[in-house]
C-alpha cells in the first residue's frame, strides 16, 4: 500500500525495485488500451469496453468463488482464465446478439455492465478472504503485480499491437467510413471482429492486473485526448499509446506521492490529459482560423480593417498587429502594433 506519511520522488526511486513491475504494468496496459481505444472511441463503442471490463471482473470473482467453495484450483480455474472466459462470452453476446432477441445493442451493453458489476459485488460477500482482491478488480487499488502477470501482459500486448499494426490502415478506414470500405472490398466484418476480440483479450488480462476502473479509463480517455489533436487516426493511435502509457506511470507515481488508490489516480491523470489536449486543440483551431484568414484575406480600401499610413505605404490594423500589404495586393508581412503617445 502507498505509505501514510507524505512521500517524495526520492523515496519512490529509492524503492524502484519494489515499484518497477506495477509501474511498468501500468505503462504497458495504458499504451495497449490507448492504442486500441482510438478505434473503440472512433467507432462509438466506448461502453463496450466498460461492459467487458465489468464482465472480466465477474469472471475473476467467479474464479475465486469456485476455488473457495468448490475446491477447484490450479491453472485451469485461475482468475485469469475466469476473466478471459467471462469477457469472451460477453463479447460474443454483445457482438453476435441472440437469435430472435429484440433488445437494442445499447440495452444489451447495459445488461452486461450491470450484471458484471452487481455479480462481482454479490460474489464478494461470499469470498470474504479475497475481498481485498474484489476491491482491486473493481477499482484498481493494487500496488503490487506478480512477475508472471507482468510477463503475461507483455506477451499479450506484443501480439495485439503487432496485429493492430498489420491491420492499422484497415481499422482506420472502417472507423472513418465503413460503407465505403465495404464497397472497396475490405473485410469489414473480420476487421470489426478482430477489434472486439483484441479488446476483449486486452480487457480480460489488464482487468485482472489493474482493475476495471483504470482499464475503462485507459480505453477511453487517452483516445479522446489524442483524437482531439491528431491529424489522422494512425497518428492518434500512436499518440494515445504514449498518453496511455504516461497516465499508467504518472498515475502510479501520483498514488504513491499523494496516498491515493492507484486505479483512481491513473484515471484522473488520463482525464487531465483530455483537458490538456482540449486546450491544445483550441489553440490549434485558433491558429488555423488565423492562418486561413490571412491567406484568404487581402487588405485594401473598404476591407474592414483600419488603414494606417506607414512611410511610403499603408498598413492595416488586424488582430493587434499591422499587416503590410504589398503593391500587388499580396500579404507582405507584419509590423509591431502602433504606439500611441
Amino acid at each position: 500500500m502507498p505509505p501514510e506519511t507524505p512521500a517524495g520522488l526520492g523515496q519512490f526511486f529509492d524503492a524502484w525495485e519494489l515499484f518497477r513491475d506495477p509501474a511498468l504494468a501500468g505503462v504497458v496496459a495504458g499504451a495497449l488500451l490507448g492504442f486500441l481505444g482510438v478505434f473503440v472511441v472512433a467507432r462509438r463503442m466506448v461502453f463496450l469496453s466498460a461492459a467487458l471490463s465489468q464482465a472480466a471482473g465477474l469472471g475473476v470473482a467467479a474464479a475465486f468463488w469456485a476455488q473457495i467453495h468448490l475446491g477447484l484450483s490450479g491453472t485451469w480455474l485461475g482468475p485469469t482464465v475466469g476473466s478471459t472466459v467471462a469477457t469472451g462470452l460477453a463479447a460474443l453476446y454483445l457482438v453476435g446478439g441472440t437469435r430472435g432477441a429484440r433488445w437494442r445493442p445499447d440495452g444489451r451493453l447495459g445488461w452486461v455492465y450491470l450484471m458484471g458489476a452487481a455479480g462481482t459485488l454479490a460474489l464478494g460477500t461470499r469470498i470474504v478472504q479475497e475481498v481485498q482482491d474484489i476491491e482491486t478488480i473493481l477499482f484498481g487499488s493494487a500496488v503490487a503485480v506478480a512477475p508472471a502477470d507482468l510477463h503475461q501482459l507483455l506477451v499479450v500486448a506484443s501480439v495485439l499491437l503487432a496485429l493492430q499494426l498489420v491491420g492499422l490502415r484497415g481499422f482506420a478506414q472502417v472507423a472513418v467510413d465503413e460503407d465505403g470500405a465495404r464497397v472497396r472490398g475490405l473485410p469489414t466484418g473480420l476487421l470489426g471482429l478482430l477489434l472486439v476480440a483484441s479488446l476483449a483479450l486486452a480487457v480480460s488480462v489488464t482487468t485482472r492486473i489493474l482493475g476495471a476502473l483504470p482499464v475503462f479509463a485507459f480505453t477511453v480517455l487517452p483516445a479522446m485526448a489524442a483524437l482531439r489533436v491528431a491529424p489522422n487516426l494512425a497518428t492518434a493511435a500512436w499518440l494515445a499509446a504514449v498518453l496511455g502509457g504516461a497516465a499508467g506511470f504518472l498515475g502510479y507515481l501520483a498514488a504513491f506521492l499523494f496516498t491515493l488508490p492507484v486505479g483512481a489516480a491513473q484515471a484522473l491523470v488520463a482525464g487531465a490529459e483530455v483537458l490538456l489536449t482540449a486546450l491544445v486543440g483550441l489553440a490549434l483551431d485558433a491558429w488555423h482560423v488565423r492562418a486561413v484568414h490571412r491567406h484568404a484575406h487581402i487588405h485594401g480600401p473598404g476591407c474592414g480593417h483600419l488603414a494606417v499610413q506607414h512611410g511610403d505605404h499603408v498598413d492595416y490594423l488586424h488582430d493587434g498587429h499591422l499587416d503590410h500589404q504589398g503593391r500587388d495586393g499580396h500579404h507582405a508581412g507584419e509590423h509591431d502594433p502602433p504606439h500611441h503617445h
Binding site: 492499422l168 484497415g170 482506420a172 478506414q173 472513418v176 467510413d177 465505403g180 470500405a181 472497396r184 489522422n232
Partner: peptide, 13 residues
Amino acid sequence: DLVRSGAERGWSF
C-alpha cells in the same frame, strides 16, 4: 488520408 484510402482494395491495407 481520405484520398489515399480510396486506392485501397480488398486486403491491400
